[in-house]
Computed example of a mutant assay.
Amino acid sequence: MTRSQMMRAVRSEDTKPEVLVRRALFRAGLRYRLHRHDLPGSPDLFILRYNVVVFVNGCFWHQHGCKFTSRPKSNPEFWNDKFTNNVVRDVKTAWKLSLMGFRVATVWECSVKNDFARTVERLAAFIRGDEESVEI
């Protein structure tokens, strides 16, 4: 399998952590829209009632820095550029969304895996609260 074939195989929507978060928020009574492609970064969830966008980020692809974050040893120049561009794009996207008046939540894959109940609790509190942004 070539690198481009592997990259195409990686899902950007409907990942396992994203689906878990969506189901939990729905059970908590929060309604949302999925993948608003007309917004910067195509947020995973858009909650109009609270003016909130939610990104569920993979720790590897967005270089969170936790134990799930690593860097491939082969072709390091490619991967360093790729990860740097991802991180810069994430920052710019959050900034653009906040300028548009949205509150931005970033949920990391590791928090979903490590303490799911606490993650959902914190996210629901953020959505119903008044903080400008949160990383969980």
Rank of each mutant, 00 (worst) to 15 (best):
Val19Cys: 09
Pro40Thr: 08
Thr106Phe: 03
Ala24Leu: 09
Lys92Asp: 13
Val10Ile: 15
Leu30Asp: 03
Arg71Glu: 11
Leu34Ala: 06
Ala105Arg: 03
Asp38Asn: 06
Lys16Pro: 07
Trp95Ala: 12
Asp90Ser: 10
Val54Phe: 10
Thr15Leu: 08
Pro43Cys: 04
Leu30Val: 08
Val91Trp: 12
Arg27Gln: 14
Phe83Tyr: 00
Ala28Leu: 09
Ser98Trp: 04
Glu77Ile: 13
Lys73Cys: 09
Arg89Asp: 10
Arg33Trp: 09
Leu20Cys: 08
Leu34Arg: 12
Ser70Asp: 06
Asn86Leu: 04
Gly58Tyr: 03
Pro17Asn: 10
Trp61Ile: 02
Thr93Ile: 05
Leu45Ser: 07
Gly65Cys: 02
Ser74Leu: 11
Pro40Met: 03
Val52Ile: 14
Gly101Thr: 01
Ile47Met: 07
Val54Ala: 03
Glu77Asp: 13
Tyr32Asp: 05
Pro72Gly: 01
Val87Met: 14
Gly65Ala: 00
Phe83Ala: 01
Gly29Cys: 05
Val104Thr: 02
Val10Glu: 14
Ser12Ile: 15
Thr106Tyr: 06
His37Glu: 14
Glu77Leu: 13
His62Ser: 01
Glu13Phe: 12
Asp38Trp: 07
Arg23Asp: 12
Val19Gln: 14
Trp95Tyr: 13
Cys59Lys: 01
Met100Lys: 10
Gly58Asn: 03
Thr69Ile: 05
Val53Met: 06
Lys82Pro: 14
Arg33Gln: 09
His64Tyr: 00
Trp95Gln: 14
Lys16Met: 15
Lys73Asn: 10
His62Gln: 01
Asn85Tyr: 04
